[in-house]
Design a binder for these strands. Structure first.
Length: 851
RNA sequence: GCCCGAGUGGCGGAAUGGUAGACGCAGGGGAUUCAAAAUCCCCCGCCUUCACGGGUGUGAGAGUUCGAAUCUCUCCUCGGGCACCA
């Protein structure tokens, strides 16, 4: 018996596929096309189990589609711009470009042995000038179409390092390197007008039939359409004659429960007041020291400052309300000002209690309604409530009815107007960093902000930069920054902001259809290959990446780079669960966390310790594997010890694909043993001859397995499909059938396993004398006649509890089943305890005797 | 804080209104072996029973149903996202 040597076998078949060009995609209108895409990786330098899981799932689909007669496109590339490359350059010298391309080479070398059916001829990295030059070209197109503009926006500013920080780099309000308290600073930045498409992006969600419902729900909520009332409070004695504060509210029905006005610290009025009021200036300063993320604002203690200003209530001009500056109000949403109704909003209630403001009920529960004390009364808008301070509707009405009536009433009185607003904000794409796609504009004193000419693209990143000083090296680059104006030819300054890396990943799927085109896309290729038939990636991209891609595809269509059918670029989406792992952490002298790789941690009787120093390690429960937390596991070791097929089989078998999987070492050994067993079984069968008993049973089981596995693969039930393959392997191993039947069963088993364990399957295919490559063979078909069972076992329940069972012909009429059931001993015994109330027979399923 | 998910034996999980625990891991027993490894066979939720069987059981609590892991509501725990991590 020959031993299965994964390393040499796998290399052999990978070479065979490459020689045959099995996975190089070419346009071919004679076959249905199938574009399968997994989210491309960031080139960290090492592949991890998350990649293995993601790309193996896509590979199963790609190989299955190839076997079912499709022309498959299955490309791979690199999401190669981003902060880690600059961080590496700062930490250890070197250049982001060298670091990135070296990582790509390293990672590709780790990916190749996995045997994924990728078309490497289409590979590109987003940091290739050929790619980002086309992106710059599209930026100029977008500019012409009015899809890009500039406005002020706040960033996290590290006053010691004099640099802009990402949210991730702000830890407890302090810069991650300097430890200095972070400030909010306003900069002029570039934005995509995604908000113009709020309604369209929202409506089109309905057409995404093959997207997970939860992703669609998350996107809907993110876009956040709301109907409300916009109106103004008149301001008493405002500065510079300012006489009104514009407010947007989704609950105009609670207008008579207002007790204060809140404005954002960034509101123009707040900014005006801080000029001469030191208290306001101090308070605003403090607010500006908070992080810029919504999470930071929402989690922070709700605080406010009474400006001393008062406004009049629109329905009662004698009623004056105080104006507070409040730290939880976003300038970016609505008008940057709200009215607070403490009785019906918990945040407003907390605020009112803290500052001694009145709590005015506008409605109470329809039955036993009591005034609000410590908890705001916030029933669903569809509940009928009893109105105690309503206007323009009945005493008993739902929130929805009251809101509609309030808007109509206010409009009729000339107090504001109904408006629809969206939570979705424009996409800020400016980054004050080097390692990104340069924004192709120049700043000219005479001509203003002007795009560069397309013939001078790509605007390449200069190579001669250093990272010994914080901040953006482009800002201080002597020759790169200075240029001439493309309009007037006078000296001008290049834009030094680069693009958000989400821009890079918002159109790579389109570029894969023609990676060498002289324009961003080639329409005949885009038309043939688009849309992506199956997109696969992590749930963590449910909102931003996918929403930005949907917007970008529309913008590309407007500029003629994609056909109209591609404005929703992903026909089907599958969000795989993440691979998680425990996190190991110690603290440095400043009590900041220091993370450690699992391979550096040892388990002793007294707990987890660092292998090198014996220092105790705090173990944090499993979370998403991430480079920054170092809770990553290296699949290269599994490939080395067991081979790629084992790694592939293992990541597919252990968990349902949409769910998180915690990485464990034990499964790998089991997968390897099973594949070895199949190889032994195949060699035994190859050597056997003669006839036996039970051929029909074996073939029946085989057809059932074809059916189940096909269904499993098509519905992303990979773990369930693998369980069926285990079961069929057991059946085959125990079968006493003749050699011919066993060979047929073994060949079929190899084919059904081929999308998952392609190398082993090729080896078995060849061993059993099949012609050509299994990768190019047609998927086996289940014979429907073999799937029909002639008899069925029905469980018999008594009052919902299983008590017995009967085996009957599949098509036995209900009446006969009932007769048999009543003769059953367990049923007879039960009937002695009480009279028969009901007899439920679900044909082919179950019988329930109700007593 | 807000939005979205998930929770089933010792462990990963199966079952999407119809026999809860398929399949795998770990564990126990046996065969083979001088012995071991490897391999093969059997057992395996918990309580109770010599056994047959009975009771109980899908994070907690309620509800709908002849029947609920599955549907509804409330709560708890864990995870993802929150616009400059990718």
């Amino acid at each position: 018996m020959s031993r299965y040597d994964a390393t040499s076998v796998e290399k052999k078949w990978q070479d065979a596929w490459e020689t045959a060009g099995t996975f190089a995609a070419k346009r071919d209108v004679s076959k249905p096309k199938y574009y399968v895409l997994e989210m491309f990786p960031y080139p960290s330098g090492r592949i991890h189990m998350g990649h293995v899981r993601n790309y193996t799932m896509g590979d199963v689909i790609a190989r299955y589609k190839l076997a079912t007669g499709h022309n498959v496109l299955h490309p791979m590339g690199w999401d190669a711009f981003g902060m880690p490359a600059e961080n590496a350059a700062m930490a250890s010298g070197g250049h982001p470009k060298d670091w990135t391309y070296q990582n790509i080479a390293d990672m590709k070398a780790q990916m190749k042995p996995m045997g994924w059916s990728l078309d490497w001829t289409r590979e590109f990295a987003t940091c290739d000038p050929e790619y980002y030059g086309q992106q710059q070209s599209m930026f100029i197109d977008f500019l012409e179409k009015g899809l890009v503009y500039r406005k002020n926006a706040v960033v996290n500013w590290d006053p010691v390092d004099m640099t802009v920080l990402a949210n991730e780099q702000v830890i407890d309000g302090k810069g991650w390197r300097s430890g200095a308290p972070v400030e909010r600073r306003e900069l002029t930045q570039w934005f995509f007008k995604i908000s113009d498409y709020s309604e369209e992006l929202l409506e089109a969600i309905d057409s995404l039939d093959n997207w997970p419902a939860r992703v669609k729900l998350m996107q809907s909520n993110w876009i956040g359409k709301s109907r409300g009332l916009q109106f103004a409070f008149s301001l008493i004695d405002g500065p510079d004659g300012q006489d009104r504060i514009e407010v947007y509210t989704t609950r105009p029905d609670t207008l008579l429960g207002a007790s204060f006005i809140g404005i954002s610290p960034d509101h123009p009025l707040a900014r005006r007041l801080e000029i001469e009021n030191p208290d306001v200036a101090a308070f605003n300063d403090e607010c500006r020291r908070m992080g810029t993320s919504e999470e930071d604002l929402e989690k922070a203690e709700k605080r406010g400052l009474d400006t001393g200003l008062r406004v009049r209530h629109p329905f009662d001009t004698a009623w004056e309300l105080p104006v507070y500056i409040a730290n939880f109000i976003l300038m970016d949403y609505g008008t940057g000002a709200i009215f607070g109704c403490p009785a019906h909003d918990q945040r407003d209630l907390d605020f009112a209690r803290k500052y001694g403001l009145p709590v005015i009920d506008t409605f109470v529960a329809a039955e036993n309604g009591a005034p609000v004390e410590t908890e705001a009364f916030v029933p669903p808008k569809t509940d009928v409530v009893k109105w105690v301070r309503g206007f323009a509707w009945d005493e008993n009405a739902t929130g929805e009815q009251a809101i509609d009536a309030a808007i109509a009433f206010c409009e009729s009185k000339g107090v504001g107007f109904g408006v629809t607003k969206y939570r979705l904000r424009d996409w800020g794409l400016s980054r004050q960093r080097y390692w990104g796609c340069p924004i192709p504009v120049v700043h000219c004193e005479a001509c203003g902000v002007v795009p560069v000419k397309k013939e001078s693209l790509p605007i390449r990143l200069p190579d001669d930069v250093t990272f010994d000083k914080p901040g953006n090296p482009l800002d201080r680059h002597p020759t790169w920054r200075n240029c001439t104006c493309p309009v007037c030819g006078n000296p001008a300054l290049r834009e030094t902001d680069t693009m958000d890396t989400f821009v890079d990943s918002s159109w790579y799927y389109a570029r894969f259809t023609a990676p060498d085109a002289e324009t961003p896309t080639s329409l005949p290729d885009a038309d043939y290959w688009m849309n992506v038939d199956q997109y696969i990636g992590g749930i963590e991209h449910a909102i931003l990446h996918l929403l930005y891609s949907r917007f970008f595809a529309r913008a590309m269509h407007i500029c003629g780079h994609l056909p109209e059918k591609a404005i929703e670029p992903f026909d089907a989406l599958f969000t795989q669960g993440m691979v998680t792992h425990e996190i190991y952490v110690t603290r440095d002298e400043n009590d900041r966390p220091v993370y450690h790789l699992p391979e550096h941690v040892e388990w002793t009787e007294s707990g987890a310790r660092l292998g090198a120093t014996g220092q105790p390690v705090e173990v944090i429960p499993s979370a998403k594997m991430s480079k920054s937390k170092k809770n990553v596991v290296d699949p290269v070791n599994i490939i080395r010890d067991y081979g790629a097929d084992t790694a592939r089989w293992f990541v597919l078998s252990d968990s349902p694909p949409e769910r998180d999987v915690e990485w464990t070492a034990s499964g790998a050994e089991a997968a390897f043993k099973h594949l070895s067993r199949i190889w032994r079984l195949a060699t035994d069968i190859a050597a056997a001859d003669g006839s036996g008993q039970g051929d029909a049973d074996l073939l029946r089981a085989m057809h059932k397995t074809i059916h189940d596995v096909t269904l499993g693969v098509e519905s992303f039930g990979f773990n369930a499909a693998i369980a069926k393959l285990y079961a069929f392997t057991n059946t085959l191993a125990k079968s006493t059938a003749g050699a011919a039947a066993k060979r047929q069963a073994m060949v079929t088993l190899a084919q059904l396993m081929a999308p998952m364990t392609p190398h082993l399957s090729e080896e078995i295919w060849a061993l059993l004398g099949q012609k050509g490559l299994i990768a190019e063979a047609s998927w086996p078909a289940a014979d429907p006649a073999q799937l029909v069972e002639d008899s069925v076992t029905l469980p018999i329940q008594v009052n919902g509890k299983r008590r017995s069972e009967i085996t009957v012909a599949k098509d036995m009429p209900k009446e006969e089943v009932e007769k048999l059931v009543l003769e059953d001993d367990a049923v007879k015994r039960a009937l002695e305890q009480g009279a028969l109330k009901k007899l439920i027979v679900v044909p082919g399923r179950i019988v329930n005797v109700v007593i």
